[in-house]
């Protein structure tokens, strides 16, 4: 989907936390940036990660249940994943973490942050799931064909065409299937939200930015406003002419915006 930078690239590693052997990409040195991927899975080293790795240690795991990581017995709901990542932060001895989460990963990040911000320096959400606004229509992504899924992600349909033209390997196909299974387990019902999360977002006391593609078809931009209202120190930053994944669709502008936010939050 996104093109990995050929310059340096991350180290690949497996670490075991809470009994879950977890695939992790890491690069750089400095205050840590932990990136939580969305429902389509991780394992892709994105341009903004490369950019941040110049000043930070960037850590990009694949969630329990996803991709190359184990599916542990305890993998039942989004709260399990949130506690797992709080454990992972402890296990790696990270402090002052800049937590970045996209879509499903944004939801996990919120669930972590309402539980504890003790190890967090800041929070960046990208088209985050986790909330529900009554009466705001959202597509049923579990009903989407692969083509609809590709088209629905992007404002620029050339990116969707490129994604559809790429023939995935057998391993990649199997990971995609695994990612869909894991997503269903976490997000089938209620559909991509936790009905109790909104009551506790006020507990998030670190600087927060809510990034959103103004043309996001999966989670309409009105959700950005709601996150902005519910999280005390949040600002909302829209990307124009952009769909659900600003980090992929507008990599340079996104990397710049995130780097600026992280620098100010430090």
């Amino acid at each position: 989907m996104a093109v990995a930078s050929a310059d340096i690239g991350p180290r690949e590693d497996y670490i075991t936390v809470a009994g879950c052997r977890t695939y992790v990409q890491r690069a750089g040195k400095g205050t840590p940036v932990l990136y939580l991927h969305g429902a389509n899975g991780g394992g892709r080293w994105l341009p903004f990660m490369e950019r941040l790795a110049a000043d930070h240690e960037v850590i990009a795991p694949e969630h329990p249940g996803f991709g190359r990581s184990d599916t542990p017995d305890w993998f039942d709901n989004i709260h399990d994943v949130a506690y797992f990542y709080l454990d992972l932060i402890d296990a790696l001895g990270l402090k002052g973490v800049h937590l970045v989460g996209s879509s499903l990963g944004g939801w996990v990040a919120c669930e972590m942050a309402v539980r504890s911000t003790a190890r967090l320096a800041s929070l960046a959400l990208i088209g985050s799931a986790g909330l529900h606004l009554k009466g705001v229509a959202r597509p049923d992504t579990f009903m989407w064909t692969p083509e609809e899924a590709a088209r629905g992600l992007f404002h620029d349909q050339a990116l969707a065409e490129k994604m559809l033209a790429a023939a995935p390997s057998d391993d990649e196909l199997e990971r995609q299937m695994k990612n869909r299974f894991a997503t269903a387990r976490l997000a089938w019902a209620p559909r991509f939200y936790d009905p109790h999360l909104h009551k506790w977002l006020h507990r998030i006391d670190v600087p927060t930015v809510v990034f959103w593609g103004a043309q996001d078809q999966l989670v309409p931009a009105v959700y950005a406003e709601r996150f902005g209202e519910l999280i005390p120190k949040a600002t909302v930053h829209y990307f124009d002419a952009c769909g659900h994944l600003p980090q992929v669709e507008q990599p340079a502008a996104f990397a710049e915006a995130l780097a600026t936010f992280v620098r100010r939050a430090a």
Binding site: F142, M143, T145, M177, K178, R180, F181, T183, A184, W188
Partner: peptide, 18 residues
């Protein structure tokens, strides 16, 4: 019915889906 409706993720094992 389309396959997305017939086989929602997790309904069958990854092996049977394949």
């Amino acid at each position: 019915m389309p396959v997305e409706m017939l086989l929602p993720p997790g309904y069958s094992s990854i092996e049977s889906m394949k």
